[in-house]
């Protein structure tokens, strides 16, 4: 994390975004020159339903401070019900994180359609501020190995 200013905590947030909506919204936010914190790293998925709970867990265990999932509004899923499954998994994950002792507030989900660039940048601002308030994630000290685990 070369860009971190020494002394101040800069959260590392991983965002799983749906190709058809939130990823496009992020793109829109970018082309419209909207400002939002650079703490979020987006990983494009074809659908929020593709976000396996294991992705979230692995990301936390590898040192992320927060995880964001962005999907299409209910009823607008490109694959009909992918986002509905995602919402169920997200609800389960909140409780799972709480059961093992990871603050569930570190996980956030939001519906952001392709036209909602402002909502995307606002959400990222808000979430980054929230994670900053919570402090470093429980596995932040772990150095990522930077190579594919086999």
């Amino acid at each position: 994390m070369g860009e971190e200013v020494k002394g101040e905590f800069e959260p590392r947030i991983i965002g799983f975004t749906c190709n058809w909506c939130t990823y496009a919204a992020a793109d829109l936010a970018g082309t419209a020159r909207m400002k939002y914190p650079p703490n979020i790293r987006l990983i494009r998925q074809m659908c929020s339903g593709r976000v396996d709970p294991l992705f979230v867990l692995k990301v936390f265990l590898r040192g992320a401070d927060g995880v964001f999932i962005g999907g299409c509004h209910p009823g607008e899923c490109h694959y009909m019900t992918g986002n509905l499954s995602a919402r169920r998994r997200y609800s389960m994950m909140k409780k799972l994180l709480e059961s093992v002792g990871i603050d569930p507030k570190r996980l956030r989900m939001e519906w952001i359609s392709a036209s909602e660039g402002i909502k995307f940048s606002d959400t990222v601002k808000e979430f980054t501020a929230q994670i900053k308030g919570l402090g470093p994630g429980p596995f932040r000290h772990i150095e990522t190995e930077g190579k594919e685990q086999k």
């Binding site: 509004h73 209910p74 019900t81 499954s85 169920r88 939001e110």
Partner: peptide, 20 residues
Amino acid sequence: PPLIAAKDEEASIDDIDIFL
């Protein structure tokens, strides 16, 4: 099983936290 049992009517509910 609950994680794969999304109901049709859920498609018209926008709230993220309907289960919480």
